[in-house]
Amino acid sequence: MAEDILALIKENVIQGRVTRDDEGFDEGLVGQAGVSELAKEALAQGVSSQDIIKLGLSEGMDIVGQKFEAKKYYLPDMLASAKAVGAVMEILEPYLTRSNIKPKGKIIMATVKGDFHDIGKNIVSILLRGAGYMVKDLGNDIDPQVIVAAVREEKPQFLGLSALLTSTMLRMKDTIQALTEGGVRDKVKVIIGGVGTSEEFAQSIGADGYGADGFQAVRVVDKLNTSRKD
């Protein structure tokens, strides 16, 4: 019974359906329960919030990631699925707090000074939340000193920096430099992303990781998180 409802949650994450009124990636699903109704039903049946996250949401998003990489899914499809995950996480939040379940880690996200492009950052933030991380989004056009102060105050394990323009990419280096000068560079792993950035660029400015897209960003954070705990 639990397996059935978890499989349905997983399938509806893949379809990107929050409620029964939503259409899915495929047609003909309107009227069938979406993830919100299914998650509430699963909790009523006594399914644990961890199982809903692991076997419903995470497994569903893994498949969405595979479809995205295989170019069977595109940005809006991935966003619809991420939104479905976010909707369930909201439902589960009080259960997770009650069970004293900790997030996998904390990450601060920011689009660097001089850049207002935030769609990529927002997508990565949604995917990270869905993957079990606590995300604090500072917004866009963020001064390096504001980021340094946030790292001091929030004590995140990770910092995600985003930039789209070739001119503002260089502000990522300034931000990392500011972390060093502020004495907090060794307290946080820095992951960068954005259209013009690359693995080589990340290495050249002293970042710890690079995410070419949202899913890769989550994988990089997961990998750094594992090595941090080892």
């Binding site: 259409e23 069977k72 940005l75």
Partner: peptide
Amino acid sequence: SIGYGTDCKLPTRL
């Protein structure tokens, strides 16, 4: 601009 080429399956909702 949101990633869909001419040969992609476009979901009806989109």
